[in-house]
Amino acid sequence: MLEITQLTKAFGPNKAVDNITLSVPQGQMVGVIGRSGAGKSTLLRMVNRLAEPTDGKILFGGREVTALRGRALYAWRAECAMVFQQFNLVGRMSVINNVLMGRIFHHGFATAMLQIFGPEERALAIRALDRLGMAHTALQRAETLSGGQMQRVAIARALVQQPKLMLADEPIASLDPLNAKVVMDALRTINREDGITVLANLHTLDTARTYCDRIVGLMEGRVVFDGTPDQLTDRQAREIYGAEADDAFSEGVTSTSLRPAQPVRALEGAE
């Protein structure tokens, strides 16, 4: 159970996240939507403390995440995996070692610096890569991969952390539709099979609708929608994205999903 209480992050006079209260039960897949600058990334980054909150609390399983320091904080980050828009892999390192980074918290100084990982850990990493169809690239350098492949390696890295919570900050914003589908399917599978809570920032509405149990809409740092995909009406979506009432607004325009081609309507009057 992830409990966010009155969380605020201010950059000078601007509040990127403004008094957000949110409660996520274990195993839920939550999509966070909103315009760019609505505070989606800041919210996610505060959960694993890559960003420090100005005010408010985050609790996970009764533990106060916002109060953690030192090794306890590293332990929390190890437990709460993060997937980034730009993958954040080490390009000049092999894929397998990138994935094994996910085990770094469990190592002492010497074995970590010298990259000494045991056969069990390697097996864990290979199985994670294999789940994402990437095991065959294990010995290549990460920079030789394509974007979609890199994101799958990044998810494998997150998996070997054996996390309870997975944060995904725009995981598919830099990917083509097919790779976006592969990555979102992977996140969904991980959520279903392993019972890992997934909190994902998504830039397209239809992805959020397709994959998430719950959608949270942010606007100017505040929660303006919180409910199931069915509850999200066109009017509310319009409000979240701040579209003017008479602006054309269609989910299809921003859609990156692959769907069967629409049959072309027969011309009226044509025989």
């Binding site: 199985r127 095991a135 065959h136 690239t137 294990a138 010995l139």
Partner: peptide, 26 residues
């Protein structure tokens, strides 16, 4: 060594043992 680091996992085989074999070679 980059060119030779990719490998194929034959269907039905355990990916871990295939990886370990190639790792040992490398």
């Amino acid at each position: 060594s980059i060119a030779t680091t990719g490998f194929v996992i034959p269907p039905g085989q355990d990916p871990v043992s295939v990886f370990e074999k190639h790792r040992a070679e490398l």
